[in-house]
Design a protein around this nucleic acid. Structure first.
Lengths: 231, 231
DNA sequence: GTCCCAGTTTGCTCCACCGCAACAAGCGAT
DNA sequence: ATCGCTTGTTGCGGTGGAGCAAACTGGGAC
């Protein structure tokens, strides 16, 4: 197997403070894995024996309810660690990680987690900072779900997505991975029908442009107003 | 100031693995603080310069929306750390911690966090296990809010509360801190009216008994059925 | 090209829930 | 006791958005 390039890691938060030889060691312990859109790195309930770093692509973290409904808990963008359940004391993965598009990741066996934390100064701090951010984001979502109506929630989700995975294009900012109305409804706790109606309306107002499995925001500012941001 | 008793800490997860002299050191660095029901240890947005351990009482972690609505993110029971924002890389507290009843807590300045993590083996692990559990709980709530209707959500919240702060009494399990319909609605994203109606109905069915600011569950099993647990 | 299917659009009906309003019931203070 | 304030109860109308159903569309497989 050919060696992985060190530059993959040097600029990512968890590894930023490390020197070349340390990065080398970490990379040599890693296993690369590539999966297609729609496939999963692991399923909810699997014993958590690895943790991952997403190098390229986008992941949907999906929770299934006992009666078959699914909720998208969050998205992972490239450069982020995921599947770190074990580092937080969980024996099994709490959700399924589905590739939104073609994904490339590295993984390490769990034993490496403690080694990384112990050996590489700053790894723990940087990592838990990421956890803090996720906590924050989930908190925001709970507040949204509790206080806002569907239109505002959908607007919030779109704004969050263009922040996390937005790509500038001539006519606005597009979400650079495939995303269906169903997906958006799974993120906002509504139905694909309602999302479709909203996007149609917004398209008429010139706020967004959307094709099949693709959304582009042309007037982010308008969306901010709709999202119910007070001030 | 008289010395704090070591037995306060010995059985709590973050300190379980430590010996007497270590516990002594930790206690000597702590400042005790007592507040009344309704008061707050800190407010959302305050610079996070301390972290706390709740010794007695119950805390509501409350988030305010820009337009004045409030959402109860979670409850803290005695024995738990809280206000650990700084340990997760946040500069300010993300929410307000309001005492549900009279509360007694210890606090340490932030600098002690890194010291604890570095000095006391297992402190970090145990602590992040707690964070993992909170992440999990919040995840569950997001799924609930996204998929279930009000009746099920309220049932879930009551079940969660009797698990976290239930006290066995002759006629069932009571939530052993004051809690209003408004509070319950702030947890479930509904209105106090709807909660009142639900509790009235459940009281008629003999599932719960409630007085002003007090709820007792007499038939937990019935509540589980209502909560929509499939199986 | 044609078929097929996942994704989307749109209309219509219905009901869970919100929002208002008015009232009742505790509980503390004086 | 009387007042005042917080908390709880209940009725009623309006509506946001879910839950059907039916039709359309674009893109990939062949």
């Amino acid at each position: 197997m050919k060696k992985l390039d060190e530059s993959l890691l040097t600029n990512l938060p968890p590894f930023r403070k490390l020197d070349r030889s340390q990065i080398r060691q970490i990379l040599d312990a890693a296993t690369p894995v590539r999966i297609n859109a729609g496939d999963a790195f692991f399923d909810q309930g699997d014993t958590a024996e690895k943790f991952f770093l997403l190098l390229d692509g986008h992941i949907r973290v999906v929770k299934m309810t006992p009666d078959g409904e699914q909720v998208i808990a969050l998205h992972i963008a490239s450069g982020q660690l995921f599947g770190i359940a074990a580092g937080l004391g969980k024996a099994t993965y709490p959700a399924t990680s589905v590739a939104a598009d073609e994904c490339l990741a590295l993984y390490w066996p769990n034993v490496m987690w403690d080694r990384f934390v112990a050996t590489y100064d700053g790894f723990a701090t940087e990592t838990y900072k990421v956890v803090g951010e996720r906590l924050d984001e989930m908190n925001k979502r709970i507040v949204e779900m509790a206080t806002q109506q569907v239109e505002q929630r959908v607007a919030c989700v779109l704004l969050r997505l263009i922040n996390q995975a937005g790509r500038k294009v001539p006519d606005g900012i597009e979400i650079d991975f495939p995303i269906t109305r169903q997906n958006i409804s799974d993120m906002t706790g509504t139905t694909l029908h309602t999302v479709s109606r909203l996007l149609s309306a917004w398209e008429k107002s010139g706020i967004v442009a959307s094709k099949r499995s693709k959304v582009t925001v042309t007037e982010p500012h308008q969306l901010v107003l709709l999202s119910g941001a007070t001030g």
